[in-house]
Amino acid sequence: MLKRISVKTNQRDEMQDITSEVRSALKEDSFRNGIVIVYSAHTTAGITINENADPDVKHDMLMRLDEVYPWEHPKYRHGEGNSASHLKTSTVGASQTIIVEDGNMILGTWQGIYFCEFDGPRNRTVYIKTLEG
């Protein structure tokens, strides 16, 4: 199965929990066992897995990424002015792979799947691909 989901972001930098959307895609496809790949086909937005119980984790991650990769830097050369978003995306990564067993993603108690926007607000697309095994 290959499924696309739309993500509408509201800020330049934000993390949206898309775990339930991925679960829904697996359920719709009756996918039971294998792996699911969650992929962002954008150079300025990524996918990560992290804690989804405490919203301060998202805040702290975005704050620290902004400290490491400030929006403006005198040595950035990219003409669009969004070099920081490219650096953040490369650091976070474009995809995550999750094991699926008996129709359930194997995630830790506090883990969730996040779409990470670094150049919003925008309308984005996330791809969900299942592989049986």
Rank of each mutant, 00 (worst) to 15 (best):
R23L: 08
S24V: 13
L26F: 12
L26P: 15
K27S: 13
D29W: 04
N33W: 05
G34D: 02
I35R: 00
I35M: 03
I35C: 02
V36W: 01
I37Y: 03
Y39L: 06
S40C: 08
A41I: 07
A41M: 11
T43M: 13
T43Y: 09
T44H: 11
T44G: 09
I47M: 01
I49N: 04
I49G: 00
N50E: 02
E51W: 02
N52R: 12
D54E: 12
P55Y: 10
V57I: 15
K58D: 14
D60E: 15
M61S: 07
M61Q: 13
M63T: 15
M63L: 14
V68T: 12
W71P: 03
W71E: 08
E72K: 13
P74A: 05
Y76C: 05
Y76Q: 08
Y76V: 05
R77A: 03
H78M: 08
H78E: 11
G79P: 01
E80R: 06
G81L: 14
H86I: 10
H86F: 11
H86E: 08
L87C: 08
K88D: 13
T89W: 03
S90G: 14
T91M: 11
T91R: 05
T91H: 12
T91L: 12
G93Y: 10
A94I: 12
A94V: 11
S95N: 07
S95D: 07
Q96I: 00
E101V: 07
G103I: 09
M105A: 04
I106T: 02
L107A: 02
Q111P: 01
Q111W: 00
I113D: 01
Y114C: 01
F115A: 07
E117Y: 14
F118H: 15
D119F: 10
D119A: 13
G120C: 07
G120D: 12
G120S: 10
P121R: 10
R122F: 09
